[in-house]
Computed example of a mutant assay.
Amino acid sequence: MPQYTPTYRIPYVSMYDPYYDLPATDKAMATRVEAILASLSVDPAPLVAFRVVPSATARDAAFGTPQTATTQRALQDRGPVVVRLDTGTVERYYAAYHSTNNPGGADTAGWYALNAARRTIAVTYAAGYDSSGTPGQAYITVANGMVHFEGGFTKLSGNFDSTYVTVGTYPAEFAPARRRYLAGMGAAGRAGGLQFNTNGQIVVSFNVGGTPWVGGAHSWPLSS
């Protein structure tokens, strides 16, 4: 005969119970715990799935290929993770990005390696500046809780000077929580600095010797 805990009356097996009572006691214990959790309004845990699969075909057979935004988000919320034996990668499913409804989503819904960038966003250049200089197009990537900036800004007329100027912007949702600075590079070995403001603005914050372009690379934690 099972014993019971004093507070919530959860049954458990005693050392004197016959072995054939074990299945019934286990079921009674599980049922009682579930009833207690329900009475406390504890949300059901999502079904987190982990699989080791030999191929993408096997992965899709296990998890399906959702076609609508609703079913894609439902699969993302399950948090499925697969180990691909054919590629040696670990993948997770993400639904499509939405700034309000799914800020943790990807450019397009699908499976992504955990170390792969999920979003790549081109920086919008301010009037009078472009990507024609050596550093090339400025962009940010967002992956695994990190934001990474790379690229540069070229002044279309003349050189940068000591004046602070806003040279570009990107979505403020990926901006750092506090202002960050990058000691970048300029033409002919000259130094140049970039400032990343909390509103998504990128500012050339200093320049030594005058240079038509300033660029570099910098990273910060998402929501830091």
Rank of each mutant, 00 (worst) to 15 (best):
V147C: 04
V203T: 14
A122M: 03
G209L: 01
F50R: 05
R178L: 11
D60N: 15
A117L: 01
S41L: 11
E173S: 06
G152V: 10
T154F: 01
R51C: 06
G79N: 11
Q195L: 14
N102P: 05
A113M: 04
T70A: 15
G210P: 08
V204P: 02
D26C: 12
Y181T: 11
G104P: 01
P135A: 08
A183M: 09
P66I: 00
Y112W: 11
V167T: 07
Y112L: 15
V147K: 03
A38Y: 10
F149M: 11
P44L: 08
M185A: 14
V167K: 02
H218I: 04
H148L: 04
R180G: 07
E150G: 08
A117R: 06
F160E: 07
V82I: 15
Q72A: 10
A183L: 13
W220T: 02
I121E: 01
F174I: 02
P212Q: 05
H218E: 01
I140P: 00
D77M: 14
A62I: 06
T87I: 08
A28T: 07
P23W: 00
P212C: 07
Y97H: 14
A175C: 02
Q195K: 13
R9N: 13
F153M: 07
Y181M: 05
Y20P: 06
R73K: 15
F160R: 02
T120V: 12
F196Y: 07
D43L: 15
P135L: 10
T163H: 14
A58E: 12
Q76K: 12
F174M: 04
Y125N: 11
A187R: 12
P46G: 03
R92F: 06
R84Y: 10
Y97C: 09
P44C: 09
T169L: 03
G145V: 02
L40D: 08
T211H: 03
G79M: 10
A183Q: 14
T198Y: 05
Y129I: 09
Q137V: 01
T100P: 00
L37E: 08
T134C: 02
A45D: 07
Y139V: 02
G200A: 06
G64S: 10
T154S: 13
A188T: 10
S131I: 01
V204K: 15
G168D: 03
D17F: 06
S157A: 14
V48Q: 12
S132P: 04
D17L: 09
V83A: 14
N199Q: 06
L194I: 04
P23L: 07
S39H: 00
G88D: 04
V142D: 00
V167R: 09
I10Q: 02
P176T: 04
Y94V: 00
P221T: 08
V82P: 04
A116Q: 13
V142F: 03
T166N: 08
P18F: 10
R32C: 04
G210C: 12
K155C: 00
P54I: 04
P46A: 07
A28R: 14
T134F: 13
I202N: 05
V123R: 07
A138K: 09
A217D: 03
V203P: 03
P176F: 01
Q3G: 10
P23T: 03
T163G: 13
G133C: 10
G193R: 13
G64R: 04
M15T: 05
A62V: 02
T5E: 11
Y8W: 13
A45W: 09
S157K: 01
T89D: 08
N199C: 06
R51Q: 13
S55G: 06
P66W: 13
Y164E: 14
L47T: 14
A188Q: 11
R180Y: 06
R179D: 05
